[in-house]
C-alpha cells in the first residue's frame, strides 16, 4: 500500500515535469501505471479545455461569417471550415509541425504601436503551443458547422420581432440569435467536446516530440505496453480514465443544457441525449 502511495508521489505529476525523472523500466507495478497514465491525463485535459474554450469564440465568429452569405468573410469561413473538416486531424498535426519547424527560429517582433510583442516561434514546435493551436483551429471548424446549422434554423419570426423592437444588429445577435443557437446546438456541441477530448490523445504520436518524456495519457499507456509487452493492463487503465472523464463532460454539459432550456415549458424540454448520429 505504501509503495502504491510512493508511486503516486513519484509519478503523479511526472507529465508536467515534477517528480521522478526516469520512467519505470523493470518490475513495473500496476500502481505506477495508474499514476503515470493519470498524470498524462493532465495534458489531455489541458488541450481539451483550452481548445474548447478558445475554439468556441472562434467558431462563433466563423459561423456568423458563413451565415453572412457573401463577401470575403463568408468565403474565408466556408473555406476554413471545409479545409479543416475535410482532412484528418492526424495529417494536420504533421503538416503544422513541419511548417512550424521551417519558421525562423529567432522570433518575430510585432510593433503594435503601443506595445511590442515578441513572438517566439520556437515555442510553436512544442506540443503545448503548436498542437494546441491545431486543436483550436480544428475544433473551431467542426463547432462552426454545428453553430451554423443551428443559426440557420432560428425561426424568422424571432428575428423580425427583434427588428420591430428596434434592436441593433449587435443586440439582435446577442439577445435573440445567440441564445437560440446555443440551445439548438448544445447536444451536437457536447458530442464535439467529447470527441475533441478523445482526439487530444493523437498529439504525441504526430510529430510533436514529447519533451523529457512528458507526454499525455496515451503516450504513457503506449510506453508501458511496449515495455511490458502486455497490452491488457495499460490500455484498460487509460480506457477507465477516459470513461470517467467522458462521463464528467456529459454531466457538466447536461447541466448547462438544463440551464439553456430552463425557460421552456416542461413538455418542450429535451433531455440531453448523446446520440452518435453525426460525429466530427
Amino acid at each position: 500500500m505504501s509503495s502504491c502511495l510512493n508511486a503516486f508521489q513519484d509519478y503523479g505529476l511526472r507529465a508536467i515535469g515534477y517528480g521522478e525523472r526516469l520512467l519505470p523500466k523493470a518490475d513495473i507495478t500496476i500502481c505506477e501505471q495508474f499514476a503515470l497514465i493519470g498524470s498524462g491525463l493532465i495534458w489531455n485535459i489541458f488541450f481539451g479545455v483550452l481548445a474548447i474554450v478558445i475554439g468556441y469564440w472562434f467558431a462563433l465568429a466563423l459561423a456568423v461569417g458563413k451565415m453572412s452569405g457573401s463577401g470575403w468573410l463568408c468565403g474565408f469561413s466556408v473555406g476554413f471550415i471545409y479545409l479543416f473538416r475535410g482532412t484528418p486531424l492526424f495529417i494536420q498535426f504533421f503538416f503544422a509541425y513541419e511548417l512550424f519547424v521551417l519558421l525562423p527560429k529567432v522570433g518575430i517582433t510585432l510593433d503594435l504601436w503601443v506595445v511590442t510583442i515578441d513572438l517566439e516561434t520556437r515555442w510553436l514546435t512544442r506540443a503545448w503551443l503548436g498542437a494546441l493551436l491545431v486543436l483550436i483551429l480544428n475544433t473551431s471548424a467542426y463547432s462552426a458547422e454545428i453553430f451554423y446549422g443551428a443559426l440557420r434554423s432560428t425561426p424568422r419570426g424571432e428575428v423580425e420581432a427583434a427588428m420591430a423592437y428596434g434592436m441593433s444588429g449587435w443586440q439582435r445577435f446577442w439577445r435573440v440569435l445567440w441564445p437560440h443557437m446555443m440551445r439548438l446546438a448544445w447536444p451536437s456541441y457536447t458530442n464535439e467536446a467529447i470527441f475533441l477530448f478523445h482526439a487530444t490523445t493523437l498529439v504525441f504520436f504526430s510529430g510533436f516530440p514529447a519533451w523529457r518524456q512528458s507526454g499525455d495519457a496515451l503516450y504513457y499507456a503506449n510506453y508501458f505496453a511496449d515495455k511490458t509487452f502486455n497490452p491488457f493492463i495499460a490500455y484498460p487503465i487509460i480506457a477507465f480514465y477516459f470513461i470517467i472523464f467522458t462521463l464528467m463532460i456529459i454531466v457538466l454539459f447536461s447541466w448547462i443544457n438544463r440551464r439553456l432550456n430552463r425557460h421552456l415549458p416542461q413538455h418542450a424540454k429535451q433531455r440531453l441525449s448523446i446520440r452518435l448520429n453525426v460525429i466530427r
Binding site: 478523445h198 490523445t201 496515451l218 499507456a221 497490452p231 487509460i238 477516459f242
Partner: peptide, 20 residues
C-alpha cells in the same frame, strides 16, 4: 464503448491483443 474511450486506444490495443 466508442463513446467513452478514444478510437486511437482501440487501434493500438486490438492488433496487439489479437496477435498475442
Amino acid at each position: 464503448m466508442v463513446r467513452g474511450v478514444p478510437d486511437i486506444v482501440f487501434f493500438l490495443f486490438v492488433p496487439l491483443a489479437l496477435d498475442q
